[in-house]
Nucleic acid binder design. Sequence first.
DNA 1: TACTAAACGAGACGGTACGTCTTGTCTTAAA
DNA 2: TTTAAGACAAGACGTACCGTCTCGTTTAGTA
Lengths: 198, 198, 198, 198
Amino acid sequence: MMAPSDSGPGRRRNEHSHRAILGAAITLVADRGFENVTVESIASHAGVGKQTIYRWWRSKGEVVLEAINDGFADVAAFPNTGDIIADLRTQMENVTVKLATSDFGSAYRGLIAAAQSDPELARKHIEQIIEPASVACRKRLIQARDMGQIRSDADVQSIIDLLYGAIYYRLLLSTRPLATEQVAQAIDLVFDGIRGTG
Amino acid sequence: MMAPSDSGPGRRRNEHSHRAILGAAITLVADRGFENVTVESIASHAGVGKQTIYRWWRSKGEVVLEAINDGFADVAAFPNTGDIIADLRTQMENVTVKLATSDFGSAYRGLIAAAQSDPELARKHIEQIIEPASVACRKRLIQARDMGQIRSDADVQSIIDLLYGAIYYRLLLSTRPLATEQVAQAIDLVFDGIRGTG
Amino acid sequence: MMAPSDSGPGRRRNEHSHRAILGAAITLVADRGFENVTVESIASHAGVGKQTIYRWWRSKGEVVLEAINDGFADVAAFPNTGDIIADLRTQMENVTVKLATSDFGSAYRGLIAAAQSDPELARKHIEQIIEPASVACRKRLIQARDMGQIRSDADVQSIIDLLYGAIYYRLLLSTRPLATEQVAQAIDLVFDGIRGTG
Amino acid sequence: MMAPSDSGPGRRRNEHSHRAILGAAITLVADRGFENVTVESIASHAGVGKQTIYRWWRSKGEVVLEAINDGFADVAAFPNTGDIIADLRTQMENVTVKLATSDFGSAYRGLIAAAQSDPELARKHIEQIIEPASVACRKRLIQARDMGQIRSDADVQSIIDLLYGAIYYRLLLSTRPLATEQVAQAIDLVFDGIRGTG
DNA sequence: TACTAAACGAGACGGTACGTCTTGTCTTAAA
DNA sequence: TTTAAGACAAGACGTACCGTCTCGTTTAGTA
């Protein structure tokens, strides 16, 4: 999403159309799957001209990225109860539940697929979704490490890759449904490897 | 790829065309990226009619799947030196190196992306690539567990998901290049969690 | 249709297939219209390989030409009662009735259409259908002229073109159905112009 | 050709492309023959997308119909000198000369052939070309009949069918070239049959 | 009784065009 | 000046047939 012109002459961006586009995108992607949604179908569903979409987004993928990013709002805050193991478990479960929601998960899979051949979209995906989650997780892990809750020699980024890797692997590469219990087992194994003496 | 008719009347499948198609697919995907390759371009590069592709494969994705599967041949055999930690490290490193090969890795990313919106292709990907690797890994882990090299209460499938998850996460969701050292760090963490008393 | 090899070793032409092909051609053309019939559909309907059709005919048009030529057999003989006016009227009515038969007429229209862009087919059509009819008509007209039944200065070929022209014009270029009464009116006008003093 | 939207929003039809398409159609049909021209070749010759052709015409045949109709403009007006015989002779000669022009005649033969298997195209051909010519001829004949120049009991439609039939018969079903002298002979015969006492 | 040769049903092959779809851009009239 | 509508050039889609080319089998004559 581009920044709206903050001032100057000319008609301002129509917020109603903006929301209608994001809404149509999410609805259509849920209905037909990411690949079967076209910019034209989003435009006609939103009662908007195609040009209005191309004016503010580079592609269908970026529309969906913005819509999905909104949807991740409720798992943005990393819990901090003082118990790192419990907090990681909570957060990973929240993320898993979110992704296991079939409409949302399927839209997100479509977005990730689109990003494989669109480096700019990939960059924005990392920047807006992956990195923030990673940073929050890293911050919490470092705090825990400082408190001795996890081993001081464990590489923080590797822990993050293991935790999220287990979830995304099941999201993208498994015929089995993504379930919290399964993910929990993998997480527990990581806990066993990283537990500190504190 | 369909099974060739074993007998009966009619002209036989042209193996030269078969190989030319797989070759053209790999070359083109490496050159232009999966999304920018069309069935038409594969056909014309292979000196073949489009129908000959559609006769034997359902889509571009399935052609690339067959070509990629051939390419995985040299990491199919799971090492077995008796030392599970060393064997896992070797295998994961081999897989990582394979996927880090930019042409191959990029083709494979395209295939995985295509499979997100084509359940039949996803099924074949799992069946022909993911499952065999998973089965080989499981077999080796169970043997190691029986020998006491890894904890008897560790869930084998979870271990597999963690190991492969860490690799695929970096392949699909990272701007950083996929490197063996990085993957190795994650693997070591898993080892710490699963090491047995043997 | 090509001539069969007159001697030598080798399997002889299969007359059953020959008839099955002509039959399938007529049936299919009647069912779907000339343009919607393919060599493949004739072959599969006749239970015959495509090559067997291409071995004996140059194209779909030539298969249909042979089938149609068979169908014209019953209007081949020109009546000769001594009264040229009555004979012409009889013959033109027979031809009209034949062409007004919807299956036959529609197949024949398809053949004429195909001949517009296939000079070889056009040549064979003229040679096998148009010319024989023309020759028979010419012979009868000349005999009548010699008997003084038609004007001696009337150009015979022009009479033929007028008579057949009126029929074919209605067959090929009219939305109105081809009917004997209508054709008869035109013929009568020609009679008025050519009547002799005998 | 469809009627343009009379108003409302949206880009207007591009008249330059419209003319380029008709021009390319005529040129190509003259060059290669109707059957060897494809919608794709018209599009690429006209520097136009295929969709722009399919947006305004149902088929190649309808493009050519429009182009041919333009070409008939100079024989649209039926002469009226007061002498019906002379006028008919003039008009029939003009039409013959037009159709004998090899490019134009060959394009028109292709159109008539296409119309044999496309009832909608046939309807438009009749409506836009055959009927107007027929109506003009009928009007002139009725005026002549009223003036006693032709027999009052002659069926006007039959006269028209004879005159045009003789021309089209030679256009579509003869190996001999279409020539005015030949057509003239047939017309004279009709004149002999219809001449009135005026 | 073999051998040779042609025709057969089946069906894969390299091509070409089809008519449809979607892309991202451009043009218009209304608000 | 932005909007919705919608035409535009481009080009890939997957399908249908084309006419040719194997296949392995069947049928007739030589030999």
